[in-house]
Amino acid sequence: MASYGLGSLTRADGTVARVDAQTLESQALSAIEAAATVDEVEEARVRFLGRKAELPQALRAVRDRETGMTLNAVRRRIEESADTREEELGRAELDRRLREERVDVTLPGDELPVGHLHPITQVRRMVEDAFLGLGYEIRDDREVETVAYNFDKLAFEPTHAARSPRDTFFLDETRVLRTETSASQIHQLEEREPPVYMVSIGRVYRRDAITATRYPIFHQFEGLAVDRGITLADLKGTLRHVMRALYGPERAVRFRTHYFPFTEPSIEPDVSCGVCGGVGCRTCKYSGWIEMGGAGMVDPRVFENVGLDPELWSGFAFGCGLERTAQLRHDIPDIRALWEGDLRVLRQF
């Protein structure tokens, strides 16, 4: 008996072939070694280990344990060799394919649809977030108001210019397109006992001809805080926080005396010009300051109109335009650009 087990197998025709395992193994290993592709490895595998190949047939015919173990060992070694070679070649083929698949990475990618939030909405969210951070709630009220809510309860004097159809859109004698979001103050105070901290955001209407700086429809955000012991200093601090949230922490904020029917004292906040840094330029009309809106301490008449005692409660209110904020943030020179729905404009934001 040789060191390699010898088997015999009975062929289908009845002849018995002797199998030289050593020879078979070396033939198989060299065939696998010589294979240049995964397919050639597979061919060799079939040739030596396939169902009709000599080795498996010999294995099936084997009767003694020792021969079986020997032949199985040979088969395992051939299989391992084929697996190894296949993996090697597979990796090489993949490498080659990947090398061939190299693309010009500077070509554009697939064109996917990308949408855009309107700058007014972006600013609206900034305003909302700034006030949410201060613990305010957000309101959105009706746009058509009664004269009572738009003017009377807000203590507009009977001769205030805003009561004229030359300044305000009247539907009839008692109904108007709201001229500011201030009616929300009344709604809020009528709906709930103070403390109240809210900001109302929405469309308002003024009878202005359409120009680069004015549009008869625009958006305001208007805040109201009513609590015990609210002061003008609280208003200054709140507005400075909000202005810096909108325009940047480096901005200076100043206040000027003003007049509004529903606040007393009334003030107007200015923010230092972001274009020139306060030195004076065309944007700020050489004043160094940009007007931001109106504000003031809630007038006692407004409290009386909603049944609150002005000796007990105090508060402040303020209002600013969203378009103006968006224009300043993005340096948009013409307000009409915000209302025309032109994708060349909208897709910038």
Binding site: G135, E137, Y197, D227, A233, K236, T238, H241
Partner: peptide, 12 residues
């Protein structure tokens, strides 16, 4: 001065 209201209730 610049101050903030002393809050007793929050709605944020």
């Amino acid at each position: 001065p610049f101050t903030l209201p002393t809050r007793r209730a929050m709605f944020g």
